[in-house]
């Protein structure tokens, strides 16, 4: 088709009765086509799925770390509670000395030990 014919089609495509796609089809037949490169689909899919697999690996790592942390945290809390209970049973209080394991009697034994008396 001559350029004037294509120009006419372009103008007619905007007319009130041209919304059925027929003129668009005719323009396509005349070679008015728009498309991306040949490997466009592959590029898109590669970009999405390579990023997705990285994200999956990252999520998996965080999940395992959270699982390990929960286990360690629970065991740690249990150990602290047992320790507190045993300190309380042994010393009868929660003073700083009982936490540090240095009661009044201990001071004397350290002095004796250091001076040799």
């Amino acid at each position: 088709m001559e350029p004037s014919g294509i120009k006419d089609l372009i103008i007619r495509s905007l007319g009130e009765n041209a919304g059925d796609g027929s003129i668009t089809g005719r323009l396509e037949e005349e070679g008015v086509t728009f498309d991306f490169g040949r490997d466009f689909t592959q590029k898109v899919v590669d970009r999405i799925f390579s990023v997705s697999s990285e994200l999956v690996a990252e999520k998996e790592l965080f999940r395992s770390m959270r699982f390990v942390f929960n286990r360690v945290a629970l065991t740690g809390v249990a150990a602290i509670l047992i320790l507190l209970f045993s300190i309380f049973m042994a010393e009868g209080s929660f003073s700083l000395n009982s936490f540090l394991g240095i009661g009044d009697s201990v001071d004397e034994s350290i002095v004796c030990l250091l001076t040799g008396i």
Binding site: I10, L14, G19, D20, G21, I23, T24
Partner: peptide, 15 residues
Amino acid sequence: IVTMRMLQGYSTKET
């Protein structure tokens, strides 16, 4: 608007 009408073939209402 021209792209929607001319290249995509949508009606005015669809556009």
